[in-house]
Each structure stands twice: as C-alpha cells, then as structure tokens.
Amino acid sequence: MVVIKRFALFFSIWLSLTAADPLGLVLGTMTAGAAAWASLKLLPSGSRHVNLLSVLSMAPGFLLRTARGGVDVAWRALHPAMPIAPGWIAWRTSLPPGGQRVSLGIELSLLPGTLVAGSRGDVIYVHCLDTNQDVAGDIAKEEARIARTVQEARISHD
C-alpha cells in the first residue's frame, strides 16, 4: 500500500516534468518505481499512518500561515523603525520524536516570528523575531493542532 502511494507520488511528479509525453512513460514508470524503492529504504514508513486527505485538508491553512509569516517579516524589515526584539525560547515539547516533531519544526519555521534552531532531548530551541508577543502561546496552539491532526488520521484508519 505504501509502495503504491509513493509510486503514485513520484509518477505524478514525472508526468508534470515531462508534460505526460508518451515517449517517456516507460522510462518514467521505471524511474518512479526505483524512486519509490529508494525512498522506502531511506525513510521506512514505520507505524505512522498519514492520511492523504487530512494532509490535503491542512494545505489551505498551511498556505495562509506561510503568507502571514512572510507578510509579518516583510513588514518588519521594511518599516523604518524596524520593530523587532529578537530572542530565544527553550520549549519543552510533548510531541513524540519523529514525523510530528519535524512537522512542528517546519510549521514553526513558517509561522510569523518563529524559527526552530535544533533540539536537545525534548527541548526545542525557537528563535523569536519579537519577544514582546505571546510566542509561547502560539507554539502551544501549533503543537495541539498537530497532535489533533495525527489523532484524527489514526481514528479514520482504524
């Protein structure tokens, strides 16, 4: 099942790269197969069940937060007074290691004002652009959202 999903992903990338040129279909099938095999070697699926639908349902919100993050930092960079107060937060996360923490890292790095710079044990180090804002509250919200998405995906799978 996982093999088929990954093959479909790589094959659709091949199709958009070659504009579905029929001459390339055989080669594309072989390449996508090899890519799916390599990706399973490098990143075994493990016990994580990621529901494609729930990931897709996150996409609009993801784009919106990306846009908010960009607008926020652009405004601060262009503002004559440059309203920033950079600082660090050491955040103890309750998410299990692996995919969920990686998504938290990527999400926080896109959100307005936060950027993840590594972790030690359960503590992740977050750089904040403006420490006068309630950054800790934002991180907690984001963490809860990721945990909820994973839980929903799990329920719909069982």
Binding site: P97, G118, R120
Partner: peptide
C-alpha cells in the same frame, strides 16, 4: 543535528 541530539 536532530539525529545526534536523539542519540545523546
């Protein structure tokens, strides 16, 4: 970095 942190 993440991997070394987890191993430590």
């Amino acid at each position: 970095p993440e991997e070394t942190e987890e191993e430590a």
